[in-house]
């Protein structure tokens, strides 16, 4: 007991300040990509050809679908003109699938829920996590939000053990055929009104498994999705930012708490 107290004293309080200040990210972290189509050489499709998940369309202009993106940087490495650059910006969650398609330097970040749902969930959001073909990386970075370092409990957000106790589902993975029924039943078991949050490239568009006959290609094929959080896996800061934005606890432009 004494030893536990002494260690507690020595290790101190370690919950991060975020969102009162920007999260600390490594210098090699790849955040939101910024595109500059004006730099593209005519008829150059090098980036699209290098992309493992067909996230890039360089046929008419240049677009990058964050929903498919694995953030591997294969595109920017082959680009002769630096038309694709990686910002360190961790904020990438959107409310619609279309909004994930980046055309330039901007991204339309997720808007908050309407007033009624904010009143219901704004200060208490209970989520059931469903891994449906997730490789355990997205799961791990969702799990980390409940540790003392991130402590999502301070925002009233909690991962709960049963869909019956939940206000929504947080789905990871490309939803294999073998998990479709499991996901559907879990969704049905969640009382309405309910939210669905798709975390990671797999849950949004199948990730590296897109096109495999064994998977359905993401959560939206089975359930309606309210929030898309891209990444492979998304950084915990990206996930938390998305959740807080959905709950209306961050403004559209300000990285810190409003």
């Amino acid at each position: 007991m004494i030893r536990a107290l002494r260690e507690r004293w020595r290790q101190g309080h370690r919950t991060m300040a975020y969102p009162a200040g920007a999260p600390v990210l490594p210098d090699r972290h790849l955040g939101r990509p910024a595109l500059d189509p004006s730099r593209c050489l005519p008829d150059c499709h090098a980036c699209a050809e290098a992309c493992p998940t067909a996230a890039i369309d360089a046929t008419a202009g240049l677009t990058l679908d964050l929903g498919r993106c694995l953030f591997c940087a294969a595109c920017s490495q082959v680009c002769p003109r630096a038309a694709i650059a990686w910002t360190g910006d961790w904020r990438m969650a959107t409310r619609s699938r279309e909004a994930l398609v980046v055309k330039d330097r901007e991204l339309e970040l997720a808007e908050a829920l309407d007033a009624r749902l904010r009143r219901l969930f704004g200060r208490s959001l209970k989520l059931r996590q469903v891994s449906a073909g997730g490789c355990n990386a997205c799961e791990a970075d969702v799990n980390v939000l409940s540790t003392i370092g991130w402590d999502i409990g301070r925002f009233g957000i909690q991962i709960v053990a049963s869909p019956r106790h939940a206000d929504g589902l947080l789905i990871t993975g490309p939803v294999p055929e073998n998990m479709r029924l499991g996901l559907e039943k879990t969704w049905q078991a969640t009382p309405s009104p309910k939210l669905v949050i798709a975390v990671g490239a797999c849950a949004i568009a199948g990730g590296p498994f897109a096109g495999h006959p064994e998977v359905t290609g993401g959560a939206a094929a089975t359930v309606p999705v309210d929030l898309f959080i891209p990444g492979c896996p998304p950084h915990p800061a990206t996930i938390l930012d998305g959740l807080l934005r959905l709950l209306g606890r961050l403004s559209a432009t300000d990285p810190v708490e409003s």
Partner: peptide, 29 residues
């Protein structure tokens, strides 16, 4: 079997630009 994503079959015909990503997501941890 709930997590079956058909990775081995997808690797046949490779290696290609997706192969290493399939390897990296076989078990994400």
């Amino acid at each position: 079997g709930y997590q079956h994503r058909g990775v081995e079959r997808a690797l046949v015909g490779g290696p290609d630009r997706r192969s290493v990503h399939l390897a990296e997501t076989l078990a994400g941890d």
